[in-house]
Every structure is written in structure tokens, then in C-alpha cells.
């Protein structure tokens, strides 16, 4: 049994005219100690997915179908009281901006002890010792001093370490990290990547990393899901996914990276904008931007317009594209453009 198993997850935000379908039939699983990446552009539904796992969706959003099983226990429909016992203790979350997560009016120590007292019966001395230990785990020098300091007295990298230390306080089984390094500099980011990887290995913690940066995903995760317009369009081992992308959207994402184009050459962009979430295309959501939506003779491929593709096994992963088997024989982006 997988540690976390998500099946057919639909999330909806009721709007005045019509409901906005933020997630459509999302399914994946996470094993103990596994590091899973979720990539996609803004608006693809990455953060909604993260929030829905802990049922932290902001109103009026709600889960309207599907199941989330944690160690076999169903989380959808679980009472708020029971969920609160899981949040923080079993599933912890790290957000993008540490300044927004930390309370500016409380010292680091107060915030850590508060978290501990919310879940466990500990004396003040025990709580303090535990907090100092966790700060040591995330390689913060002089932890006793940090406990007395306020968030504004720390640098950005150190704040994010404190947030990770708080997430680790109660020995969670899963850490959900939503763009944890986006607000940081590359050198600080490199430190945090190394730290997160080491912590996951040492404590056998599962990690769900949400990022738009394929470089970070490549450094930190073993398996990756690619999201587009609320659905998973491809999943597979990270290295394979980046080096041999199957879905046209994943190919487009990878190919658009400046690293893969020689200097001063035109970058390969994905044509067109992201679909409007209230008016997403019929059929495959990616088809208006897809380079493969026509046959060789210029006639449109009807399946792309007619119905949404399902995730099907392809190579080492799973891909949601009607033509993925044939696409192997079709020239890829770069060859068609020259």
C-alpha cells in the first residue's frame, strides 16, 4: 500500500456564471521516502492540488469527487477535528514565502514551541530541547540564539530553514513543499536543495515538491508529474521525463529552456497562451497549442478535438496523449522548425 494515494481528484470553484474546474481526475501515489515533483506553469493547478491534499482549499473551492488515502485512511470528507490531528503531525507543508508563513510578532522559539504544544504534551524544557535539535538538523548555527530572534532578524535562506525545521518538528511522513526555493538566490537555493534531499533520505520522509523550475525538480526529485490545465499530462522518472519527454507539452516546456538553445539563437517557445480556466478547449486541453494536432497532409486529428486523452503507459512513464505511440515516428519540434 502506498503512503499516499490520490484517485480521480476533482476540485471545483463555484463561480457566478459556471463552476471553475481547477483539478480534473488527478491520480498519483507517493511511497514512503519518495521525492515526487510536480511541474507546470502558473494556473495549471499545482498549488490547488497541494492545498487540497490537506483540505486547506480557500472558499469557495471544494473537492467534488475523488479520494485521497493516507496510509489507507480516506481524507476526503474527514472531519476538521481529525484532519487537524494529521496536519503538521503527519503531513507538513512548506510555502513559497517564509516571511508570510512565520508570524512576525513571535520569536522563532515561541512559534516552534506553540506548534509542539498544539500536538503533544511536553514540558517547556522538553519542547525547547526538541526545537533546538530540529534547528540543528537544518544546519542553523547557534540555535539557542535563533530561538530568541524574530523572523526579520534572519536572512531569507535562514527563514526558509526555520520553516523546514518547524515542518520537521513532529516527524511528519510527508512534506509538501510549494515552490520552497523560488524566493531565494541560487547559492541559497543550492544549500536548501542539498538539505531537503538529505533530510528526506535520513528520516525516510516523503516529499511532494511543487515547482515551475525544471532545474530544481531535476536536482531534487525521483519522479515527476507534469500538470496542464488541471490535469496530469505526463508522469515518469524525472531523468527520463526531462531527457526524453513524451507529451508535446512537456517537450515544449523542456525545449523552451534557454539552456537547451545555443547562445543568441531563437528560443523555442510554446505558441499561444494558457487556456482560460472558465473556457477550456473541448477535447485535449493542449490541442490549440499542440504542434501535432494535424496529420501530415494538414487535416486535423479528430481525436484531439473530440475527447480528452487518458493517462496511458508509454515507455517508463504514463502519458495523456492520443498520439503518443505514433509521435515517436513524427519529427520533433526542432526538426519541423528548421
Amino acid at each position: 500500500m502506498a503512503l499516499l494515494e490520490v484517485n480521480g481528484l476533482d476540485v471545483q470553484f463555484p463561480m457566478r456564471q459556471q463552476p471553475l474546474q481547477a483539478l480534473r481526475g488527478v491520480a498519483f501515489h507517493l511511497e514512503r521516502g519518495e521525492r515526487l515533483g510536480i511541474v507546470g506553469e502558473s494556473g495549471a493547478g499545482k498549488s490547488v492540488l497541494a492545498f487540497s491534499l490537506l483540505n486547506l482549499l480557500s472558499r469557495p473551492g471544494f473537492i467534488n469527487a475523488g479520494s485521497i488515502r493516507f496510509e489507507g485512511q480516506e481524507l476526503v470528507g474527514l472531519s476538521e477535528r481529525r484532519l487537524r490531528r494529521l496536519r503538521g503531525r503527519r503531513l507538513a507543508m512548506i510555502f513559497q514565502d517564509p516571511m508570510m508563513t512565520l508570524n512576525p510578532l513571535l520569536t522563532i522559539g515561541q512559534q516552534m514551541v506553540e506548534t509542539l504544544h498544539a500536538h503533544r504534551r511536553l514540558t517547556r524544557r522538553e519542547a525547547r530541547a526538541l526545537a533546538i535539535g530540529r534547528l540543528g538538523h537544518v544546519q542553523i548555527a547557534e540555535p539557542e540564539l535563533r530561538l530568541r530572534q524574530y523572523p526579520h532578524e534572519l536572512s531569507g535562506g535562514m527563514r526558509q530553514r526555520v520553516v523546514i525545521a518547524i515542518a520537521l518538528l513532529l516527524d511528519p511522513d510527508i512534506i509538501i513543499a510549494d515552490e520552497p526555493t523560488t524566493a531565494l538566490d541560487v547559492t541559497t537555493q543550492a544549500n536548501l536543495i542539498a538539505l531537503l534531499r538529505q533530510l528526506c533520505d535520513k528520516h525516510n520522509v516523503g516529499l511532494i515538491l511543487i515547482s515551475h523550475d525544471l532545474g530544481v525538480i531535476n536536482q531534487l526529485t525521483q519522479r515527476t508529474l507534469v500538470m496542464y490545465a488541471g490535469s496530469i499530462v505526463e508522469q515518469g522518472p524525472t531523468r527520463v521525463l526531462i531527457n526524453d519527454a513524451q507529451h508535446p507539452y512537456t517537450q515544449g516546456l523542456v525545449n523552451a529552456l534557454p539552456q537547451l538553445t545555443p547562445p543568441r539563437q531563437r528560443l523555442r517557445q510554446i505558441p499561444g497562451p494558457l487556456p482560460d480556466p472558465l473556457d477550456s478547449p473541448v477535447g485535449c486541453a493542449f490541442h490549440p497549442r499542440c504542434p501535432y494536432r494535424f496529420h501530415d497532409d494538414g487535416t486535423p486529428r479528430e481525436d484531439c478535438l473530440a475527447r480528452a486523452p487518458r493517462l496511458e503507459s508509454a515507455g517508463e512513464g504514463r502519458v495523456a496523449c492520443h498520439w503518443v505511440r505514433e509521435l515517436h515516428e513524427i519529427p520533433t519540434f526542432e526538426e519541423t522548425s528548421t
Partner: peptide, 24 residues
Amino acid sequence: HALLAAMPRIDDDRNCRPLPEAGV
């Protein structure tokens, strides 16, 4: 050197190398 080494790359399987963090 440090800046280039810290850059997370997709075309390189080497881990990015961290640098001692700066003081404030």
C-alpha cells in the same frame, strides 16, 4: 565559480554544489 556551481541544471546530473551561506 560558486554561482555557476550552484545553478541547478537539467543537462547535468551532478548535484549543484552549495556555498557557505552569507552573513547578514
